[in-house]
Design a protein around this nucleic acid. Sequence first.
DNA 1: ATGAAAGCGCTAACAT
DNA 2: ATGTTAGCGCTTTCAT
Lengths: 358, 358
Amino acid sequence: MASMPTVYDVAAAAGVSTATVSRYFRDPDRVSPSTRTSIAEVVQSLGYVPSGLARGLAERQTGSIGLYSFGDHEADEYVQPSPAPGAGVEEIDERNERVRLFPLFADEVLRGVELECTIGKTPLTVGWQGLDGGGIALDDLARRVDGLILLPHVMSRETLQLLARTRPMVMVSEAAIPGLPVGSVTVDNRAGVGALVRHLIVAHGHRTFEFVGRPTVALDYRERRQGFEDALTEAGISVPEVTRVGDSGRTGTRDAFLHRLRERPLPDAFVCASDQTALGVIEAMQAQGIRVPTDVAVTGFDGIVAGRLCTPSLTTVRQPMETLGRTAVRLLSEQMAGEGARHLTLPVQLAVRRSCGC
Amino acid sequence: MASMPTVYDVAAAAGVSTATVSRYFRDPDRVSPSTRTSIAEVVQSLGYVPSGLARGLAERQTGSIGLYSFGDHEADEYVQPSPAPGAGVEEIDERNERVRLFPLFADEVLRGVELECTIGKTPLTVGWQGLDGGGIALDDLARRVDGLILLPHVMSRETLQLLARTRPMVMVSEAAIPGLPVGSVTVDNRAGVGALVRHLIVAHGHRTFEFVGRPTVALDYRERRQGFEDALTEAGISVPEVTRVGDSGRTGTRDAFLHRLRERPLPDAFVCASDQTALGVIEAMQAQGIRVPTDVAVTGFDGIVAGRLCTPSLTTVRQPMETLGRTAVRLLSEQMAGEGARHLTLPVQLAVRRSCGC
DNA sequence: ATGAAAGCGCTAACAT
DNA sequence: ATGTTAGCGCTTTCAT
């Protein structure tokens, strides 16, 4: 690359000062038509593009907002099947492929963020935290942007506190942190699971349930489990132990679940904390010859696309993921405009498909 | 927001020089343990985060790469259905919903780019060009990054030329531009359509075909059409006129197509230039009571998710979209490392589903 | 309408 | 191990 020309180069070549070149880009009307054209020529011939870095430094802002997401894509199940190079055009039958886990929650939220950024003409800087310590650090992203949207993450409260002091932030699907001026958008997890459980009871007459998930301190897990317990209690059904599963997505779930299957008889329904967990559960049972939903119902939570592509399709609670993203951007804009941090809870929908027996 | 503390503030409070503070962040080992802790304390209490802008300016690079994409999301069909706030948990039946156009080509490519960025620990700055002149300008994105990946766009050759002089760029699904040091990744469009047409001939015995698309100068359109014509010629079938459709995605296609339906009898098969076009065609025909694939076969090109969710599911040529994105990042990295611009063509797969009659 | 010059916050020689 | 200081490329008063 030819080393980048600067304002000085342009100014010199055009026989004007750097101030005039700067004006040419920021407010052309303040430059006389004749100098305007001569600067334009120089810009073309030099291939000059103003440095966003220097501009931002002088303006004291980057002009970009940040999204901190997670990159959970090592496993095959996240990767799009791709043909080997060289051969002709291979014919494939997707019914024999494993359902790919894309797009997931984070991808749909990103979509919403993207939408608002397009409208607001704001470039978005995305940083992904890898599972294994890969990806970039939150700080690294934070210093590049004027405001941050955080997807649920394991991150220290100190880091959060440090960053929240100097820049607007909005969390998606995380509980508001008392004392920190950080906005948040969540969904009504409890109501969602409640509606789901009532559907299983009322429409299918189920009486025995098991909640399956990876116990964490995360808001969504806690609330969904609470919704499960409340709904059962309300129906006069006793609350069973949680069936714990591993954390590495579908595979981990499947292995942990095979163990569970050997221990106790099946309930009427497995209510899973997420769609990904439910997909693992279904896979584990199909591997054992147990039929879903004939032998047992299985439900999820989230509304990811894979839940529609799998067999049987997954009855679940659908979050307005895209709206979560859009709302996060709006709340962030408010905060960047000096308004206070707000906390919003969005409604969910019950998506009745096959895995519940419907 | 408390106005941001700077290195000077930290240095002063810790009783050291700014150079030491800088070293503390960039190479802690070069700072003695005792000063290290005292700096750490000051950083915490001040809430100091280094400015990426100033750092980048001094280092002469942003440390981020850019993706210029398109934001084609005004229409309903791109938006995730979302519940009205306030009500309880609404129950939905997705079979009555229109298939949402997400994720599309650009989203899958983004996914691939994302994957490589996570591995490379590189933040990604994305800019979207809106359809109606919304979104951000390519220049705006360009000045913020060290290298650019371009999705297919309408953009002036001058802009491209200007930018390509000073920074590495890679185009996805666009023809290499002679004389410009811009890398590119494409897929084998001709082979893909060829395989598709042969499938229709061999497996289904079809003899009359029509190519449906929006004629443009874009590489993908030209190559796909060429593949269509070559395959027919090879089979001794005469090549018909192209059926032209509008440009606004599914809706535009449908309207243009209704017009077509009134004019001539149906062929055995409509070979569409893209999945989105095919979805519009199917919708138009279903609106007329024409059955797919019973009355006529319809095929697409791309392999977007909506093609699997629609009824009948869409027989199509699947591009390795994620791999396109990953490859683009790799080529860009090469160029940023000083290597030359390369041009790669990736293979495609034939995804046989229902809409061809299988 | 244009110019001169002082920052913006950090890094990286070069010194000590 | 730490400090001094000259940039990095742009914006923006304040003059003219």
